[in-house]
């Protein structure tokens, strides 16, 4: 071995694996929050590497708004089968049926913020003490302040001004009954790091990330996929376009970009040259300047 240093991807990977192993050691009942998006897929892959030859020792938990891309669900089920692990579905529809949350009204209604209640209810019901998320600090300004082991009070709330200091790589996961933690093993990765890693590890991702023909309509400066959940205004026109998605969320709020990138190398080139942040196409973040911070304080992931 000629070199005595790791390249940045190896070092990021080593750090993330270390964090996942700390989660396993320090908590009784952790889950991976799995959305079917690239970040939670990478977290799952890292967990696979961290515990091999053991199978991933965490169930995957999907907060299901009911407004899914069919491709995401198919991908999720296939992966769960391959990993031979447990899937926990936290259903927003059930929360609505039980009267725990009220559906938003109007054209821009989404189930995005309803997920908070569903998530917190299921965490409590299943006595989950740590939810591992794919959040990255480069994604959004309030996430830049997030800890790797992030404490939540008994109401599931995040108190950004009163976080535990986190030094070296000594993580403090101590909590009182009823409280829980969120853990973010890929905090220090950027969007481009994720793509480079997906390429290097040959990780399978949903087809939605690659350019494909789709029925879409132009709204809030991006191409919103046509689906049965979408209320179409007079004047809005459904057209067929070649698009791909940079992030995957609810089908009602995830905007696509026009793209010809149909393989990983082209995506990496496109991302490297991209002049807008990936969440720029997410209408959930555009509601106000502090939309993410406000939701996170309440318990959003």
């Amino acid at each position: 071995m000629g070199k005595y240093y790791l390249n940045y991807l190896d070092e990021l990977e080593a750090e993330s694996i270390y964090i996942l192993r700390e989660v396993w050691a320090q908590f009784k009942n952790p889950v991976i929050l799995f959305s079917g998006g690239k970040d939670s897929i990478v977290v799952t892959r890292l967990a696979q590497k961290a515990f091999y030859p053991l199978k991933v020792p965490f169930p995957l938990m999907h907060v299901d708004t009911g407004h899914n891309f069919p491709e995401t669900i198919a991908f999720r089920d296939k992966l769960v089968k391959k990993l031979n692990t447990q899937l926990i579905v936290a259903s927003v529809q059930e929360s609505i049926n039980q009267g725990r949350v009220l559906e938003e009204k109007g054209k821009n209604a989404t189930r995005n913020s309803l997920q908070i209640t569903t998530l917190l209810d299921v965490l409590e019901e299943k006595r989950i003490d740590c939810a591992i998320g794919g959040g990255r600090r480069d994604e959004e300004k309030s996430r830049a302040k997030e800890r790797i082991f992030s404490h939540r009070d008994i109401f599931g709330q995040w108190d950004p001004k009163n976080q535990r200091p986190e030094l070296w790589h000594l993580y403090n996961g101590a909590y009182q009954e009823g409280e829980h933690f969120r853990s973010f093993p890929i905090s220090n990765w950027t969007e481009l790091d994720i793509w480079n890693y997906i390429k290097r590890e040959k990780i399978e991702i949903p087809s939605l990330y690659y350019a494909h023909k789709r029925e879409v309509l132009w709204r809030n400066n991006s191409w919103i996929p046509f689906s049965k959940f979408l209320k179409i205004d007079n004047g809005e026109k459904v057209v067929s376009k070649k698009v791909r998605f940079r992030t995957l969320g609810d089908i009602t709020i995830t905007g696509g970009i026009e793209s010809e990138c149909d393989d990983i190398n082209k995506i990496i080139q496109e991302v490297a040259a991209m002049r807008n942040t990936e969440r720029g196409n997410r209408s959930d973040d555009k509601r106000s300047e502090t939309a993410m911070e406000d939701r996170k304080k309440q318990g959003y992931f």
Partner: peptide
């Protein structure tokens, strides 16, 4: 480098914030 709502309102930084950038030579945190 502004992050949290209070920081923007008060014009100060309250907490450690992490930023990332990459050049052809290194990835910086």
């Amino acid at each position: 480098t502004d992050g949290l709502k209070d920081e923007r309102e008060q014009g100060i930084t309250i907490d450690v914030a992490y930023r990332y950038f990459t050049t052809p030579k290194r990835k910086f945190i």
